[in-house]
Computed example of a mutant assay.
Amino acid sequence: MKFVFDLDGTICFKGQPISDRLVQCLEKLIEAGHEVIFASARPIRDMLPVIDEKFHNFCLIGGNGSLVTIDGANVQVNSFSDDQVQAVIGLIQEYQATYLIDSDWDYAYTGPSNHPILNNVDPMKLANSVTLETLKRIVKILILSSTNMERMSEQLVSLDCVVHRHVNENVLDVSPQNIHKWSALQKVGLKGKEFIVFGNDANDISMFKEVLHSVRIGNHTELEKYCTESIPLEGDYETSIICKIGQLSNVYRPKAI
C-alpha cells in the first residue's frame, strides 16, 4: 500500500524535523512492504531539512503539487504563466502586499525579518534569496500581508490561480490552476482508492477526496467531511499518530507473493 504524508502539522510540528520516533515508525512501515510518499506545501528545498536524509530519494511532492522529485531528480515542475506572473505583480503593487515567492529552487521574500514563516525557509542555505524580477519558473506564491486580503484573494482566483486561505497564519497560498497534491500523485502513477493519506489542512483536500483511507490530524473544518477518521492534537498525539500508522500498516499489509 502507498502511504502519503503531509508534513507540517501532520508528522512534523512547529517547524521541527520529523521526530526520531516517527522516523522509526516510517521505517517499520517500509520494512512491512509499504511505500511512503511525502506531499507538502513546502518547496522541495524546504522539505529536505525536516525529512530524515534516508528519505531524501523517496517521491517528494512540494509546492502543493507544483514540484515532484524522485531519487533527487525533478519529475515535474509546474509554474505560473508569464501573463499570470505579470498580473500577480500588478496585484502585489496595488495591494501593497508582502510575499514569499518560490521558483523551483530560489525564492524572493519581502516580509518582515521576524515573520514566523522565515523559520521554515531554506534553513540549510541551499538556495538564494533574490528579487522577484530575477526569479524563473515561479511555482508557488504566499501572500503574507496586503491592504485587502479578501479582495486580493478574489482577484487571484480570477487569474485562474488556486488560492488557499490559511486562517491561522492569515496568509494566501497560491498555486497554478489544476495543480494540487492529487494531480502530482497521479503524475507518479497513483490511482484513486489505492492509497492512504495523513494530512491536516485545506491543501490536502484534493488527496482526501480520492483515497482508500484518510486520517485528519487536528481539527481543520474543511477536511472533516472528507476524512475517514481524525486524530486531535491533544495530549500525546504523536503516540496516537504512530499507533494509527502501525494499525493501518497491519490492516493493509501487502500480500506475500
Score class of each variant (00 low, 15 high):
residue 60 L to M: 07
residue 132 L to G: 00
residue 7 L to H: 02
residue 247 Q to F: 12
residue 11 I to V: 11
residue 57 N to M: 11
residue 62 G to Q: 12
residue 155 Q to N: 11
residue 41 A to E: 05
residue 249 S to D: 03
residue 20 D to L: 13
residue 176 P to D: 04
residue 68 V to F: 04
residue 206 S to M: 09
residue 194 E to G: 10
residue 109 Y to A: 03
residue 247 Q to I: 03
residue 5 F to L: 01
residue 256 A to P: 03
residue 146 S to Q: 04
residue 155 Q to P: 06
residue 246 G to E: 14
residue 221 T to K: 14
residue 176 P to M: 02
residue 97 A to F: 08
residue 16 Q to M: 12
residue 167 V to R: 15
residue 75 V to P: 00
residue 114 N to K: 04
residue 174 V to C: 10
residue 175 S to T: 13
residue 180 H to D: 15
residue 179 I to C: 09
residue 133 E to M: 10
residue 206 S to E: 08
residue 195 F to H: 03
residue 171 V to F: 06
residue 226 Y to N: 07
residue 204 D to L: 11
residue 82 D to I: 11
residue 111 G to P: 00
residue 14 K to L: 08
residue 80 F to P: 07
residue 219 N to I: 02
residue 77 V to Y: 10
residue 202 A to L: 15
residue 179 I to L: 11
residue 180 H to M: 11
residue 88 V to A: 12
residue 72 G to W: 01
residue 46 D to S: 03
residue 12 C to T: 10
residue 205 I to T: 11
residue 88 V to T: 09
residue 227 C to D: 03
residue 75 V to M: 10
residue 131 T to N: 13
residue 90 G to L: 11
residue 34 H to V: 04
residue 233 L to N: 04
residue 28 K to P: 00
residue 94 E to I: 08
residue 232 P to M: 06
residue 19 S to Q: 07
residue 29 L to E: 06
residue 151 R to H: 13
residue 78 N to L: 08
residue 156 L to D: 04
residue 38 F to P: 01
residue 226 Y to K: 07
residue 176 P to N: 05
residue 80 F to Y: 07
residue 169 E to C: 06
residue 253 R to P: 00
residue 100 L to W: 14
residue 117 I to N: 01
residue 223 L to H: 09
residue 55 F to P: 10
residue 67 L to A: 03
residue 137 R to C: 06
residue 100 L to H: 12
residue 42 R to H: 01
residue 78 N to H: 13
residue 8 D to G: 04
residue 238 E to W: 09
residue 156 L to M: 12
residue 166 H to N: 15
residue 106 D to N: 04
residue 227 C to H: 05
residue 216 R to E: 15
residue 161 C to H: 11
residue 231 I to H: 03
residue 128 N to D: 13
residue 115 H to A: 02
residue 35 E to Y: 03
residue 245 I to M: 07
residue 201 D to S: 08
residue 158 S to N: 15
residue 194 E to L: 08
residue 13 F to T: 09
residue 146 S to F: 08
residue 38 F to K: 08
residue 185 L to R: 01
residue 65 G to K: 09
residue 180 H to N: 15
residue 44 I to E: 07
residue 223 L to K: 08
residue 76 Q to N: 11
residue 172 L to E: 06
residue 139 V to R: 05
residue 132 L to C: 04
residue 200 N to I: 09
residue 236 D to C: 02
residue 237 Y to M: 02
residue 4 V to S: 02
residue 22 L to A: 09
residue 32 A to M: 13
residue 97 A to V: 07
residue 100 L to F: 08
residue 14 K to M: 06
residue 9 G to A: 02
residue 75 V to Q: 15
residue 228 T to C: 10
residue 110 T to F: 00
residue 166 H to D: 15
residue 21 R to A: 12
residue 4 V to R: 01
residue 237 Y to C: 04
residue 10 T to G: 03
residue 60 L to Q: 01
residue 160 D to E: 14
residue 142 L to A: 05
